[in-house]
């Protein structure tokens, strides 16, 4: 990992053939005709990496992230164009329901289902997708998913309590567990720590570094030090454009664009 040549993105899967897992091709999103929130973004994301998407608020970073699991399809006024390939398959041609399962999403504010128990929250994806499981399968999935987010020991005795009974940080980890339970290809995280205290934030960051072994993670953040701490590659977006996409260390030390530099040095943001 030492001598990275310029513009060669970090790829953790050194043994593999450097196949990107996710390819964005000319992705644009508009909220109203003629008003583009994301403008012609193309990028390759490599497996088992954490990619941070940064930029000032309103730059389109969340919008881009939500395009990847077809969240915009829920709102008829929003239009997405371009192609997104997940493991070579164009998700724009797939059923959105399938896409959303393959690209799990974690939101800005923890949103466990308030009427479900912790146990049921982890299994919510199965219940919502009408997949029947035996008791043993359920127990196994719940335990594995909660262990993966380091929540198992904290909640194993209160499984039947409501999800909303947990603290904010725990709720967010529960939401990650809920997503992991469906075994997605990529994890999309929309400022997952912005509503949390520093201690919880720290825990989630550690968790992400751990999850990288098994998943590919895209994280939207407006916290530059967070991006520096955990991400392998970084995107900088400004006014809907992808200005710069480079290995994180390189971007923070030698930004290629003036806008990136201004943002990273705090001139605007």
């Amino acid at each position: 990992m030492e001598n990275i040549t310029e513009n060669k993105l970090n790829n953790q899967n050194e043994n593999s053939t450097n196949e990107p897992i996710l390819q964005l091709r000319n992705v644009s999103v508009s909220y109203a005709p003629g008003k583009k929130a994301v403008n012609n973004v193309s990028a390759d994301i490599y497996p088992n990496t954490i990619t941070a998407i940064m930029g000032p608020s309103g730059c389109g970073k969340s919008t881009l992230l939500r395009a990847i699991n077809r969240m915009h399809d829920l709102y008829p006024k929003i239009e997405t164009t371009g192609d997104i390939y997940l493991k070579g398959q164009n998700i724009m041609e797939m059923n959105p329901m399938e896409v959303r399962r393959l690209a799990g999403m974690v939101f800005q504010t923890p949103n466990p289902f308030p009427t479900m128990s912790i146990y049921d929250n982890v299994l919510a994806g199965y219940r919502l997708n009408c997949i029947k499981l035996t008791r043993e399968e359920k127990d196994e999935i719940v335990q594995r998913s909660l262990m993966a987010v380091a929540l198992w020991d904290e909640v194993k005795d209160v499984m039947n309590r409501r999800g909303s009974f947990l603290s904010g940080g725990q709720q967010q980890r529960l939401c990650i567990a809920r997503t992991l339970a469906l075994k997605p290809e990529v994890l999309l995280m929309d400022e997952p720590t912005s509503a949390l205290d520093p201690v919880s934030t720290n825990k989630i960051e550690e968790l992400l570094l751990d999850l990288k072994k098994n998943f590919t993670i895209l994280i939207v953040t407006h916290n530059m030090s967070q991006a520096a701490r955990i991400s392998d590659n970084s995107m900088f977006m400004y006014l809907g454009d992808l200005v710069e996409y480079a290995p994180t260390r390189q971007m923070f030390t030698k930004p290629q664009h003036k806008k990136t530099e201004e943002y990273l040095t705090g001139i605007f943001g």
Binding site: N95, M97, E98, R101, Y126, N129, C130, I131, L182, K183, N214, F215
Partner: peptide, 15 residues
């Protein structure tokens, strides 16, 4: 986590 969860009922559910 290589084994994928099977979802075969997508069309029926969409209908």
């Amino acid at each position: 986590m290589s084994d994928r969860v099977k979802f075969s009922n997508v069309k029926k559910r969409a209908a």
